[in-house]
């Protein structure tokens, strides 16, 4: 399973921060695939899945932002009632605790992925290795190119 990295940016909770961050991403031609914002009384962490995460992290750091990169999993959700239930039931059976989760949707709603941020990613990956799951990843060459379509994106 190739690594999928999530970009986290520390931000004070005040107007204009998201604009400043996304402006940097836009200028660098970084495509945002999913976003999630968690806030707690005065500050927040803005998370992105992007096509060129290393480049995005580097540019944001240069602009003075406080950035962290960590590996997450993106598990495909089957597009029918019970899709999320099946995945979460499996995770719970394997005793994988979810720190944070959000959804990534590709190609005009053809495919949806649950982005799962867990404490022990290596252990979780091992536990899910032989399950019948499909994961989303950004191909290495995607670092210099935007993702073309889901065909290339899946393992």
């Amino acid at each position: 399973m190739e690594q999928l990295k999530q970009l986290s940016i520390f931000s004070e909770n005040k107007p204009g921060r998201l604009t400043k961050i996304t402006k940097v991403l836009a200028e660098e031609g970084v495509n945002i695939l999913a976003i999630n914002i968690a806030s707690s009384d005065g500050f927040g962490v803005i998370r992105f899945i992007v096509d060129k995460c290393e480049l995005a992290a580097q540019k944001l750091r240069q602009k003075g932002f406080t950035v962290s990169l960590n590996e997450v999993m993106a598990i495909e959700l089957v597009d029918r009632p019970g899709g999320l239930f099946e995945v979460s039931a499996l995770l719970s059976k394997k005793k994988i605790n979810i720190e944070n989760a959000y959804v990534l949707i590709l190609g005009s709603r053809k495919k949806a992925f649950l982005i799962v941020d867990v404490n022990e990613i290596e252990k979780a990956k091992k536990l899910l290795k032989h399950e019948n799951l499909r994961f989303f990843t950004v191909k290495k060459r995607g670092e210099s190119k935007t993702v073309q379509g889901e065909k290339n994106d899946l393992e």
Partner: peptide
């Protein structure tokens, strides 16, 4: 900066 790991609960 260097000690930020992206986790909200750590910040809390």
């Amino acid at each position: 900066k260097e000690l930020f790991d992206g986790k909200v609960d750590h910040l809390v």
